[in-house]
Nucleic acid binder design. Structure first.
Lengths: 267, 267
DNA sequence: TAAATCAGGGTTGTATGATAACACGACAAG
DNA sequence: CTTGTCGTGTTATCATACAACCCTGATTTA
């Protein structure tokens, strides 16, 4: 048997600890928006570390948008909640309303992406989509290869929009959705589903190939509606079928750690 | 291969530039997942900065999950190309095509948000929008107060969608757009603009108040087209065409599904 | 009197050198 | 072949110094 040691016993860097500590101060309101942080030297002495470590911590918080600093003046807590990075809490996604929100957002992006792709796609884009579709045909429904090809199809649609951020955002959102679905583990598989899903993709590709933006939108919308059904969401208020909801044995990846950190922050 | 540090020395910190540069290497595939980065000393010399700056940049990339480092070994590109955070490169936004992409993405989100808001807005939402509009009326065009009220208006529209992530994403994207516009500083102001912009907002609010999703879409689309003109974008395809919004339901009140998922999460 | 200028201290940004902690391979001893 | 030791390279941290910049207040000037 193989030992399963904790992958990262790597003690957190001092800068991480300092950053967490400052972050906690902000979260708990002891440092209010607009407040000026102590000077780097002061922080260094109070934490018992070098000013260098403090600077790395501040650099991190600054990159997260929590604080901003100006040479010659000091560092301040950001007034508006204006993060420069966008994160999605894994745990929050376990709640149905959050999941629905994200799914809806994904739908908006995908549908518009399909329309843009229909207008701007190149032959290379079409080839990439076709290849991804072939990959889906070759793989069993729901397998890792199938999922990868599915993702690849949507990624190539996003790429065909010629909009860098569209691809970035879409991949980001889709990944979160996919993770959440995998964690729920209530996907039911059947050969019918494979056929139906493939058909949906083919219609999308056909519309994009024909440069028919409206048709591409519709096809993508249908596809997402179908996908929603397949994962147990329904567009109407009613839940379609009580999803078989058992065992989610190993889904939570970092939740324990996150919980621990949050507890620390709360204390 | 020193990059043009001298040119952009002012503004963002050196560590930001270094982080952007490394980040770009990863994004463009010159640094593949699993690859080891050059040593800090090597990076410092190639970039022409101190090792300290390189360390701050690496600390930032590490906090973003792009790379991982271990004492005594080196820094490596994270295997999974599945970032848990979404960031927008500051440098890239200075390029016109990137800016246009982001503006387009913002348009897609805003237009669809307007439609959703028209369907789901509450009286409180309407009040918030009206208040923001009043703030714009009271402030001189382009002033800080005006910009804040403008942002507040769009924020309250996003809030009215009842979609948490819609608000998060929209605020995130809008902030990046706004920053970029401020950095460019090529905004020309006039009283006419104030009147026109106010009128655009009023039409949006009226449509949302009337629960007319299509009109809200159109109004928002007009507004964004006008905004594009005002900041010097004249490509008409910078704003996506309005699209039929999927029949979407209120994201709340799915007790069965929610219960099921909660059960899963608990197990 | 009022405005402009300038000097000084305080703070962040960057550079530089040094030391400790750690990983890894080479190499000799058993 | 295994084990222990050592040397080298890298990251993590420390310490110090200087540059760039902001702010304030005194001083000078109109």
């Amino acid at each position: 048997m193989t030992l399963k040691l904790d992958k990262v016993n790597r003690g957190p860097h001092l800068s991480t600890l300092v950053a967490s500590s400052i972050s906690r101060e902000i979260a708990q309101g002891r440092l209010k928006p607009g407040d000026q942080l102590p000077t780097e030297q002061a922080l260094a002495t109070t934490f018992g570390v070098s000013r260098n470590v403090v600077r790395e911590a501040i650099a991190r918080l600054r990159s997260e948008g929590r604080i901003w600093s100006q040479q010659g003046r000091g560092a301040f807590v950001t007034d508006a909640n204006n993060p420069t990075v966008l994160t999605i809490d894994y745990e929050a996604l376990q709640r149905a309303d959050s999941f629905r929100s994200l799914f809806e957002l994904r739908g908006i992006l995908e549908v518009q992406a399909a329309a843009l792709a229909a207008r701007r796609r190149s032959d290379a884009d079409l080839a990439a989509m076709g290849e991804a579709l072939a990959g889906m045909r070759a793989a069993p429904y729901g397998s890792v290869a199938w999922l990868r090809s599915d993702l690849e199809f949507h990624r190539s649609v996003a790429a065909a929009t010629r909009n860098t951020y569209m691809g970035q955002f879409l991949v980001f959102v889709s990944e979160r959705v996919r993770e959440s679905i995998l964690a729920a583990g209530n996907q039911q598989k059947s050969d019918d589903m494979a056929r139906i899903t493939l058909g949906e993709h083919e219609r999308i590709l056909a519309a994009i190939r024909a440069s028919d933006a409206e048709a591409a939108q519709m096809a993508m919308r249908d596809h997402l509606a179908g996908a929603a059904l397949r994962v147990g969401l329904h567009e109407s208020d009613a839940v379609a079928e009580p999803a078989p909801v058992p065992e989610a044995a190993s889904p939570v990846r970092h939740s324990r750690l996150r919980k621990a950190i949050r507890k620390q922050a709360a204390g």
